[in-house]
């Protein structure tokens, strides 16, 4: 990967996506360097999931292009792992945890080739990493929400990618699992991977992530959290529906009023 280190891991230019005649993403640009944890935040309907899906070629954009390490996604699939929303699959499907994790290896296997011992061992290793090793043989319908999410993460880990896209991995998981996921994200970053996470909890953005993309159909701001995660940008992204409690006691980058805590007001 030496020749790729000076290229951005993800390079999105002029991405526009529409459902029928309604724009869901409008002219979005984003460059993400390798080794960065990036949160995508924005209100409901801001196009966060759509952004990920169009990068992965699951939705056809009206305009724009996406490059992964300088080349189109279709030629770089092996470098990219994807964790869809937990609710997007049928957890009553007759299969085991280990089997689901092995699906992460199908991409490198390609058509017709069957998973073998290597794939099995990789899957078991990934389950070990997410603390799910003893659930390997379990039917997936018997998992709790947190365990389902860990299974999905293990499936992404066996893809052994350079870039990870995760759609709301913290959705409906308990505090222990959230902690485990954060540790995992940091470990991935430590190994030089880029991780893009659709995230909902504004409070934890500064703690968990180093970059943030504020999105509301358009790109509101993107860059290091300390620079762009400001009250003003949040207000622009959420349209004044966000209440802030001023920060105190924590070291904030000089000259920015990055909020320690921001909540979406109920109602």
């Amino acid at each position: 990967m030496d020749n790729q280190t000076n290229l951005p891991a993800i390079d999105i230019t002029d991405l526009t996506v529409a459902y029928q005649d309604k724009p869901v993403l409008w002219d979005v640009d984003l460059q993400v360097p390798p080794g960065v944890l990036l949160a995508i935040v924005g209100p409901n309907g801001a196009g966060k999931t759509t952004l990920i899906k169009s990068v992965l070629g699951l939705i056809k954009p009206v305009a724009g292009q996406t490059l992964i390490f300088g080349a189109p996604y279709a030629t770089q699939r092996r470098l990219v792992a994807y964790v869809p929303q937990r609710g997007s699959v049928d957890w009553d499907f007759p299969t085991s945890v280990l089997d689901v994790v092995m699906m992460g290896r199908y991409g490198r296997l390609g058509w017709l080739r069957r998973p073998g011992r290597d794939d099995r061992e990789a899957a078991l290793g990934a389950l070990e990493k997410v603390g799910m090793a003893r659930y390997a043989g379990r039917q997936i319908s018997q998992l709790s929400g947190g365990q389902q999410q860990r299974t999905f993460l293990a499936r992404a880990l066996v893809q052994d990618a350079q870039v990870y896209f995760m759609d709301e991995p913290f959705q409906g998981v308990d505090a222990t699992t959230e902690r485990a996921i954060v540790d995992l994200l940091k470990e991935l970053r430590g190994a030089g991977k880029s991780v893009v996470v659709v995230h909902h909890d504004l409070q934890t953005v500064p703690e968990y992530f180093d970059w943030v993309l504020l999105l509301n159909i358009r790109r509101i701001a993107a860059g290091p959290v300390g620079v762009v995660f400001t009250e003003e940008n949040l207000r622009r992204a959420y349209g004044g529906r966000v209440g802030f409690l001023g920060g105190n006691g924590h070291s904030e980058p000089a000259g920015t009023a990055a909020p320690r805590r921001a909540e979406t007001q109920a109602g």
Binding site: K53, L56, G57, L58, A74, R77, V80, Y82, P84, S88, V89, D90, F93, T95, V100, M103, Y106, G107, G110, W111, R155
Partner: peptide, 12 residues
């Protein structure tokens, strides 16, 4: 059948 999204992302 289980996860069409991942299947498409993986190139199937």
């Amino acid at each position: 059948t289980f996860d069409a999204g991942l299947a498409a992302a993986l190139g199937f």
